[in-house]
Amino acid sequence: MDPRLFLADLEAKPASLRRLASTLTGDVWRGLREPVERVLLLGMGSSRYAAEMAALRLRAAGVDAVAEYASAANSYPAGPRTLVVAISATGNSQETLDAATRYQGSGRLVALTNSPDSPLADVADLVVPMHAGTEEGGVACRTFQHTLLLLLDLVDRLTGAPRDGAGLARRAADATEDLLARRDEWLPRASDLLDGPHGLYALAPVERLSSAWQSALMVREGPRRPADGCETGDWSHVDVYLTKTLDYRALLFPGSRYDPPALDWLSARGATVLAVGAEVAGAAAVIRYPGDDDPGVRLLTETLVAELVAARWWAASI
């Protein structure tokens, strides 16, 4: 793992997204056996974060879907109309491999991976490549973004919604490019605001909870600092207590109808809030970018703020 290579991986995001967009003009899920009545998404770490967002959207459309820790001892049994998508960027995650073998030979096992020649691909009935390129920094950043996009495309395919994966990828590339180009304007301030003695705390609505989880993971994985992610509504039940005793530094991804009570507590207890993607009263700073009024663009773009902060802290620590 190398912070300079991690930064280079982040800088390559726009070009990588545009390459994926050209792939999404076709049906990357071609060969999927239908009909599908139940969807099981398996993964660990950021793979599971992305899977949770897809499962939520499938359930909202009436599809029986769950994102499962691949390490779970048991889950849904294989069935003639159960689609299993095992997600692993490297294709070598042991937990995901172990879980996938339970469905090997079912005719319904799909490997979503950045390594089409990996052990996970070998046991799958269908392989869907992430097309994220090699992440030289050793941190899943582009693969996380590509996993989200591909799973959103799967949601559209299974629910009959208009397929806009290519367009969304291009819009996310434009937004990502903008944040990268203007980083000298916002990154030093963001890094200072979030640089407290007690870690970083990310809040996001349930529809984009992966942004909070991934942001915290980037801070733990790169600079190895304490960080946690929480759903905004749940925050008032499980994390609010820390604001009374810690120098609380919040990275807020607005959009939840429960933003106001969380912000009331954060303000009353003198917490520092950095908001991304929308104006927030009382925030110490707000970072905007083109397309931040589009929920899909937000989901795919907003984690870049924490990723660049993490890269900056990581480089400074060496």
Results as ranks from 00 to 15, higher is better:
Val206Cys: 01
Asp192Cys: 04
Ala190Pro: 03
Ala175Asn: 11
Asp178Ser: 15
Ala190Trp: 07
Ser210Phe: 07
Gln214Leu: 03
Glu185Asp: 15
Asp184Gln: 13
Leu203Asn: 11
Ala175Lys: 08
Leu203Ile: 01
Arg208Tyr: 02
Pro205Arg: 10
Arg182Ile: 02
Leu187Cys: 10
Ser210Val: 13
Arg182Asp: 01
Leu203Ala: 14
Arg171Lys: 15
His198Val: 01
Asp195Gln: 00
Pro205Ser: 14
Ser211Pro: 04
Arg182Gln: 09
Trp213Ile: 04
Arg208Ser: 14
Ala173Lys: 05
Ser191Leu: 00
Arg171Trp: 07
Asp178Arg: 05
Ser210His: 05
Asp192Glu: 15
Ala204Met: 06
Arg208Lys: 05
Leu187Phe: 14
Asp174Ala: 15
Ala204Asp: 10
Asp184His: 15
His198Arg: 07
Leu194Asp: 11
Pro188Ala: 12
Leu180Val: 09
Arg208Trp: 00
Pro188Asp: 09
Leu194Ala: 05
Ala202Trp: 00
Glu207Gln: 15
Val206Glu: 09
Gly196Gln: 02
Tyr201Ala: 07
Pro188His: 10
Leu203His: 15
Leu209Lys: 10
Glu185Arg: 15
Pro197Val: 05
Glu207Val: 12
Arg208Ala: 14
Leu193Lys: 11
Leu193Asn: 02
Ala172His: 12
Asp192Ile: 06
Leu187Trp: 05
Arg182His: 14
Arg189Gln: 09
Trp186Gly: 00
Leu179Thr: 08
Ala181Gln: 08
Tyr201Glu: 04
Ala202Arg: 02
Asp195Arg: 13
Ser191Tyr: 01
Arg183Gly: 10
Ala202Asn: 02
Glu177Ile: 01
Pro205Leu: 09
Ser191Asp: 11
Asp178Cys: 05
Leu187Met: 13
Leu194Phe: 07
Ser191Ala: 11
Glu207Tyr: 14
Tyr201His: 14
Leu193Asp: 02
Ala172Leu: 09
Gly199Cys: 00
Leu194Glu: 00
Arg183Asn: 03
Gly199Asn: 03
Ala181Tyr: 09
Glu177Gly: 04
Gln214Glu: 14
Gln214His: 14
Gly199Glu: 07
Leu200Val: 15
Ala204Glu: 02
Leu200Tyr: 03
Leu200Lys: 04
His198Ala: 05
Glu177His: 01
Leu187Ala: 14
Glu207Lys: 07
Glu177Pro: 01
Ala172Trp: 07
Ala212Glu: 06
Ala173Arg: 12
Ala173Phe: 06
Asp195Thr: 02
Ala172Arg: 09
Leu180Ser: 10
Ser210Gly: 12
Gly199Lys: 04
Val206Thr: 09
Trp186Leu: 10
Glu177Cys: 00
Trp213Arg: 15
Val206Arg: 13
Asp192Leu: 07
Ala175Cys: 10
Leu203Ser: 13
Leu187Arg: 07
Glu185Trp: 12
Pro188Trp: 08
Asp174Thr: 14
Pro205Trp: 08
Arg183Thr: 04
Pro197Lys: 00
Arg182Glu: 03
